[in-house]
Design a protein around this nucleic acid. Structure first.
Lengths: 132, 132
DNA sequence: GGGGTGAGTTGCCATTTGGCGAAAAATATG
DNA sequence: CATATTTTTCGCCAAATGGCAACTCACCCC
């Protein structure tokens, strides 16, 4: 978790120099103070997300790109491949959560209502079957 | 700009509740102290990128997704373009989340299946009615 | 030589972050 | 109802962030 990932600071400075911006100009464009920028470039400070975000456009970066460079994002976001093993227990599946969250709350509640009806139905049917 | 973009904090809390994790458990999984997590959820603290990143996987988020929700990234960077806005718009009712989380994952998924069937049914019925 | 002028750096400080441990509030058990 | 036990919140503190103003270091012109 160290700075060996080809150093955001270096990249920032290089990009700034390439666009032939001074610290002051970049400060003006980005709304981040020049002194802070300077310290970031020589890694005396580590920019928060807020700052990083303000720097992206003035330097011609995509925001995600910068975040990735900063190590905030993993280099390969890939996709939702590896999520199951941890959550098998009695947790709400993220996919399910996402789907349901798209519905209005009353629909969500109705779904729970239907579920409990089905469960009690299943319960009584099992009871009948057992009784026979 | 405004922190009111549907409140990361709320989303974090809801997602945690959805997965029926306690602050302590999430703390353990994410390596962020429980007290800090608590304060983030009730927006007394605003998580840095580092913290946000640690929270993503334990909560079943894609990192970019979380960053987008936090307002660090612009709303539609690329990949997660379609699910984020919906997710941002509506939220999963905590009661519903609790109820569903008690069921095994396949039951949860079945519930979603039933819901989508009902929705498509309702859709086609509305279509027929309109046509007449 | 003595002054500007523009760039980067440093000193200082208010504010925020984030962790640890204790208090308080909920929940579970008797 | 009391009382363990878990879960959340609070108090406090060290460390980090980020801005302002002052400083240094060139370079240029007179």
């Amino acid at each position: 978790m160290n700075s060996s990932r080809s150093d955001l600071s270096e990249i920032l400075r290089q990009q700034r120099v390439m666009m032939s911006l001074t610290l002051g100009e970049l400060a003006e464009k980005s709304g981040v103070s020049a002194s802070h920028l300077g310290r970031i470039e020589r890694r005396e400070r580590f920019p928060s997300g807020r700052i990083l975000r303000r720097l992206a456009k003035p330097l011609g970066f995509e925001e995600n790109e910068l975040f990735a460079l900063a190590g905030y994002l993993s280099p390969t976001p890939s996709s939702v491949a590896e999520e199951s093993p941890a959550y098998v227990g009695r947790r709400l599946d993220p996919y399910v959560a996402r789907m349901l969250a798209q519905e209005p709350v009353d629909v969500q509640r109705a779904v729970i209502g239907i579920l409990s009806i089905l469960k009690s139905l299943a319960g009584s049917m099992a009871g009948e079957r057992d009784r026979q």
